[in-house]
Amino acid sequence: MSIALLWSLVVLLMLVGLAGTVLPVLPGTALIFAGAWLGAWIDGYERVGVYTVVVLGVMAVLAWALDYLAGLMGARRVGASPQALVGAAIGTVAGLLAGFVGVLFMPFVGAAAGEYLARRDEQRAMQVGLATGLGLLLGMVAKVAIAFAMVGLFVVAWLV
C-alpha cells in the first residue's frame, strides 16, 4: 500500500471521527485515535512518538467515558432517584438507535419517566429530565473539544 494512500486513510479517519463526535452511530474519538496511531506508525513514531499516542489514547477513553456518564451525572446532581438513572441509561441506548435527535432527547425522556415512576411528581420529573439533558449537552461539547484537541495535538506533534 502506498504512503499517499495510507496518509489519505489517516485524514479520512480523523475527518470521519470528528463527524462521529456528534453523530451517534460513529465512534468519533476512537476513529481519530485510529487515524493518529496509523499516522504515527507510518512515520515509524519519529514525529509522533509513543508518548503522544498514549496521551491521545487516554483522551479518547476520557471522551468515551464522558459520552456515557454526562447525562447520568446531570441527573445525579439534582438528586435523581435510581429509577431516573436507569431511565436515563435506557433512554441513551434507545437514543443511539433513533439517530441524532434521539441522542439529544431520549435520555431526557428516560430520566423524566424514571423519576416520575419513582416519585409521581411531574415537576420533579421535569427537573431531573432537564438536568439529564443539560448534562448530555455539556458532555457532547466536552467530547467535541477533546476530539479537536486530539487532532490538534497530532498535528502539532507532526509539525514540531
Rank of each mutant, 00 (worst) to 15 (best):
G71K: 09
D43H: 08
L62R: 03
L62N: 01
G57Q: 04
G44T: 11
G71D: 06
V53T: 11
T52E: 07
W64S: 14
G71M: 03
L62C: 09
A63T: 01
R47L: 15
V58E: 00
I42R: 05
A60F: 12
Y51N: 15
G71I: 04
I42N: 03
I42Q: 04
G44F: 11
G71T: 04
D43E: 13
A40C: 13
L66M: 09
D43N: 09
Y51I: 15
V48E: 06
W41M: 03
V48Q: 08
T52M: 06
L38C: 09
R47C: 11
A60I: 13
L66I: 05
G39W: 02
W41T: 08
V53H: 07
A63Y: 02
L69Y: 10
G71S: 08
V61L: 15
R47F: 15
L66P: 02
L38D: 05
Y51V: 15
V55I: 13
A40P: 12
V55W: 08
A63P: 01
L56H: 09
L66V: 03
A65L: 15
G57S: 05
V58P: 00
D43I: 02
Y45C: 00
I42V: 12
G49H: 06
L66Q: 03
L56T: 06
A60Y: 11
G49T: 10
A40Y: 10
T52W: 04
L56S: 10
W64N: 13
M59A: 15
G71L: 04
I42A: 03
A40V: 12
M59C: 13
L56A: 10
L38K: 07
M59N: 12
L62Y: 05
V54D: 03
V48K: 09
V48I: 12
E46M: 08
L38F: 06
W64H: 14
G57T: 04
